[in-house]
């Protein structure tokens, strides 16, 4: 069983929380990102997503765009994120899913990337602009190393594609709660609940719901019909606040995250 499979099994026993925090690596800096991952891991989330900054993040709203720009301006790259993770030892933390646009992975080299990800003990990879049709080469490399490739399903995904994606998927399925970019809407529609119901008919995999979850009440509502709620922009926004020290920032982000547990 993969690390994510085991983690979702712990969730059903009440040993983990149906919560997946997202952080943008390198904002404000990689040392802080490492501290944040450690702190968030103490909340026992079922998984954590670590975003790789990209120059042209077409699926992201302004909050994550700006965080990515700040990180890139500081010279953050996939290679440097890997260096940070080497010191952090991810196997001692809640399972980490690396969330990236495809080009940084493609330039790193698919095989070298898969080897690195598995060597570091990362649990999964989500390539946001790599749809099921194009995912085979990366998935093959990851699967050989027991790392899950996470797929997105959205309100626009047809019934036929839903089945296809469910067949390919492992770890969990990420339900995009609504159309649009990350972090812009403050409301959650019923679209995601219907989509999860459609998914249940074709798969037994656990389901996480994200895009637009900014309040604890929304996370709790999502958990009535899905295993986990993903919270991204809200935490990235919190991590971008001015703080008197790194410790103070980590405390503020942890406090913000706790409402979603």
């Amino acid at each position: 069983m993969s690390a994510l499979g085991e983690s979702f099994a712990r969730l059903t026993k009440g040993e983990a929380a149906g919560f997946i925090p997202f952080l943008l690596a390198g904002d404000p800096d990689l040392e802080t990102t490492a501290e944040l991952l450690r702190a968030l891991s103490r909340l026992a989330p079922v998984a954590m997503e670590l975003g790789v900054p990209f120059s042209d993040p077409t699926a992201d709203g302004p909050i994550i765009q700006r965080a990515a720009q700040r990180a890139l301006a500081r010279g953050v790259s996939l290679a440097r994120i890997f260096q940070m993770l080497e010191k952090l030892r991810p196997n001692e933390l809640a399972p980490i899913v690396l969330f990236s646009y495809y080009n940084p992975i493609f330039q790193f080299g698919i095989k070298a990337f898969a080897r690195k990800v598995s060597g570091l003990g990362l649990a999964g990879v989500l390539a946001v602009d790599l749809p099921a049709e194009a995912a085979a080469p990366l998935q093959k490399q990851l699967r050989q190393r027991n790392v899950d490739l996470i797929f997105l399903v959205t309100p626009t995904t047809s019934a036929k594609r839903l089945e296809k994606i469910a067949r390919l998927a492992s770890g969990f399925l990420y339900v995009v709660a609504r159309t649009g970019v990350t972090g812009t809407a403050r409301t959650l529609t019923d679209e995601s609940q219907e989509l999860v119901a459609r998914l249940r008919r074709v798969t037994d995999l656990p389901v996480a719901v994200g895009f637009g979850i900014t309040a604890g009440t929304q996370a709790r509502r999502v958990r009535r019909y899905a295993e986990a709620a993903v919270v991204g922009s809200r935490l990235v926004e919190e991590a971008a606040q001015k703080a008197s020290s790194r410790d103070a920032l980590v405390r503020a982000v942890s406090k913000c995250a706790r409402q979603f547990v």
């Binding site: 602009d129 194009a134 997105l152 399903v153 626009t156 995904t157 594609r161 995009v176």
Partner: peptide, 23 residues
């Protein structure tokens, strides 16, 4: 069928755009 000329082309988009592109 997938929009590739040799190794180039294709459809590398977030899942939300797959359905509109198919349409």
């Amino acid at each position: 069928e997938q929009g590739f000329w040799g190794d180039y082309g294709g459809r590398f988009v977030a899942e939300t755009l797959v359905a509109p592109l198919e349409e």
